[in-house]
Design a protein around this nucleic acid. Structure first.
Lengths: 277, 277
DNA sequence: ACGCAATTCACCCAGATAATCACAGTAAGG
DNA sequence: CCTTACTGTGATTATCTGGGTGAATTGCGT
């Protein structure tokens, strides 16, 4: 029954979008019928007959269904595109006023970032990580070393930030997993130094380890700040979730390790021996 | 304390966007500090200190805060713009798959609209009502009579639909509340017949009535289908909520009444006496 | 007037979530 | 080294929202 699966998925999505279970079920049922009475909805949606009315009432208030006030009351759902549009409008309105309110709220003791040493922060979510990546590249003052392992993360925006760094006469080194990506990067950034990283072990899960975790990006800025992100592929529920840690401070342990890694990885023939701890 | 009000509003908004109370409070608190420990968050947000950790953990998973795993753990919120962006991305992903799933789901008995007589449907929400308005204008076959009472509802999209109707050689009559709107409409639609409606009582609340409800649009299509929308202004909580009823069927009571109304309203000097029931 | 279905209302129960407590690790200072 | 205060984790209890059910009311057809 693939139908059931779709049904369930739709109900879950609706709930995640803010509707209650009954409301979601009723709406899905109504989406399949051009028109329906409470009884029909109840049968098709497993919602107790007596509760269909409440659910439909709030759906009406949200602009998702229309009701006909006749003896056997009839209901119909608006077209799905309209529904999505309605939900989107409500959402946008909320986020809009949210950033507004939060903006008016920030003025609290804002002592600029003091001791920025020995920090190690973790964060998650691809968008947050991408944002932090861009931000770090933007704050570079000498060099940017970046190793990419997945094609997806090579976004236009990322290239744009790298281009900006190049225009400020910074050293930009990019390590890639294979020649294909290397060529893409070389085209977009002629002034950057692009390698195929020698760190094969980085690019695929270690054979012995049981975890299917993949390093997806590795960024070193000014030999001072490091960001490492990885994806856990074993969770097929959603888009694989990306996690990252990022740390600052020249003598920060993780930064030191990363510095060594980067050096050996990008120049596999040399024995660079960068100043350690 | 206007600060408190903003604080509360922010928390409510976050909750409406899917966060729990604790999560919302913690995020708002963190948005005011560049960095904080669990204790500080607890004090600033009224969240029990021991529960701050849980809340912050899910916030981290949602990509809204970063955590520093040090002895006294430290937390920081991402910039509000980033947060909004993250939330938006999640939302879009959901609505996207939603319309997809609902689309695959619709194939159920879709006997085209049979008896379309004597129906009276109610709906609410400005966007839904606007959509229905456009749809009705698009389905017109002879004439479109529209009375506008509020400037806001004269959108470009509405004009576009009216223009389409004109190009199909339909009669388009537009009644407006005042000369200003009339001129705007006449500019945009040279071929339409535009009046300043004679129905003054429509355009403002009746003096005796206690309710401050205003009719905002009134649409009659093919002397057959009617849509009336009104706004209740006494609810300053959000944008005033718009409600509407729409009915079809030549001999539908509400349609008959509306037909009479429109006739006397648009041609105040004449005694048209359109064919009634 | 009667019966049946439609609709509403009020209540119960369960799971989720808020609130509190007790305890085990950890850092700081004497 | 020991004390002390504090940080973090887990278990426990209270509260509340919302799902689930049946009775009471309304309205319609016969």
């Amino acid at each position: 029954m693939e139908e059931l699966s779709n049904h369930q998925r739709a109900v879950e999505l609706l709930q995640q979008l803010g509707l209650k279970e009954y409301e979601s079920k009723c709406f899905v049922a109504l989406s399949q019928l051009p028109k329906a009475t409470a009884k029909e909805i109840s049968e098709l949606s497993d919602v107790p007959r007596t509760r269909v009315y409440d659910a439909v009432r709030v759906l009406e208030a949200k602009g998702l269904v229309e009701v006909q006030h006749s003896s056997p009351q009839q209901f119909r759902a608006v077209m799905t595109d309209e529904a999505a549009q309605t939900l989107r409008r409500e959402f946008e309105s909320r986020t809009e006023t949210l950033v507004d309110v939060l903006g008016k709220l920030e003025p609290t003791n804002f002592d600029t970032d003091r001791e920025i040493t020995h920090e190690v922060w973790s964060l998650s979510g691809s968008t947050s990580i991408a944002n932090r990546t861009h931000q770090l590249i933007g704050s570079a003052e000498q060099e940017v070393v970046l190793i990419l392992n997945r094609r997806k993360i090579l976004t236009d925006e990322l290239l744009e930030h790298l281009r900006n760094a190049l225009e400020m006469d910074l050293d930009v080194l990019v390590g890639t997993a294979n020649d294909e990506v290397r060529e893409t990067v070389e085209e977009a950034l002629p002034d950057a130094r692009v390698f195929v990283s020698g760190l094969e072990w980085l690019h695929s899960s270690p054979a012995d380890a049981a975890d299917d975790t993949t390093i997806s990006r590795l960024l070193l800025v000014d030999k001072n700040t490091i960001l490492v992100s990885s994806v856990h592929a074993n969770q097929p529920e959603r888009e694989a979730h990306e996690k990252a840690v990022f740390g600052r401070g020249f003598d920060n342990g993780i930064v030191v390790i990363a510095r060594r890694l980067m050096a050996t990885g990008l120049q596999p023939t040399d024995d660079p021996g960068l100043p350690g701890t």
